[in-house]
Design a protein around this nucleic acid. Structure first.
Lengths: 111, 111
DNA sequence: TCTGCTGGTTACAAAATGGTTACTATGTCA
DNA sequence: TGACATAGTAACCATTTTGTAACCAGCAGA
């Protein structure tokens, strides 16, 4: 999985961040990995019923390519994999936490 | 401009936040409005050369529909408009600031 | 022997997103 | 008289993203 990084104006930091975390489900995946430390593919699926298996795999692949999460595969049948944050991924915790906090506040005022 | 909010699992706060700020340029726009308080359309264009006039207008419209920014139109020729954060928009400052911070850190390790 | 389980991938179709160009209005400047 | 400036919008097309469904391996249990 190759990820191309398009140029940002003056290397705008906000745009850099967006390149890593934008994607329909990435922040939710990260939120789950922060909360549960380690998750199997099927667990993530359960937490995100709106996200298809295909999409989940795509987003996980991109996050892995960007070195935000790491995957551990157990060569067993049926298959078993575990996803967790890398060291770099952990630096995103304050950001995702902030997102969660804002969303809670927003949900309150919107019933 | 109508904005439909799709259902999130258990009203997941992270997904709520994403519904408001996801969009190719929204965070960058917000970052600019935080930094400069008030911006004209053409100023924003200059700050975001990668964003077309059409895209900029679309993103601004959505942010306005979600009550994150407000627009003041001066009925003059040539036209003049000013965008700024609403009260709700200002509550996003910590989040956008966090994004900026993370991006700066990330840019440093990536040359 | 047939079914189910997990963690994917592939192919195809549909929907969303984004770029480009042209168009608007009208006052000011050359 | 003609061009320029601003803040958009509209139409059209190309690209990207996303969804759906089917398929795979191979062991365990019925």
């Amino acid at each position: 999985m190759e990820r191309k990084i398009h140029d940002c104006m003056d290397g705008c930091p906000v745009e850099s961040t967006l390149q890593i975390i934008s994607g329909k489900w990435k922040c939710v995946i990260l939120y789950r990995l922060i909360k549960h430390k380690v998750c199997r593919f099927s667990e993530l699926q359960r937490y995100m019923p709106g996200c298809s298996r295909r999409m989940l795999a795509l987003q996980l692949n991109e996050l892995e390519a960007d070195n935000i999460i790491s995957k551990k595969v157990y060569p067993v049948i049926p298959p078993k994999t575990e996803y967790s944050l890398t060291e770099l991924g952990e630096t995103l915790i304050p950001l995702i936490t902030e997102m969660n906090k804002w969303g809670e506040m927003y949900n309150q005022i919107h019933r």
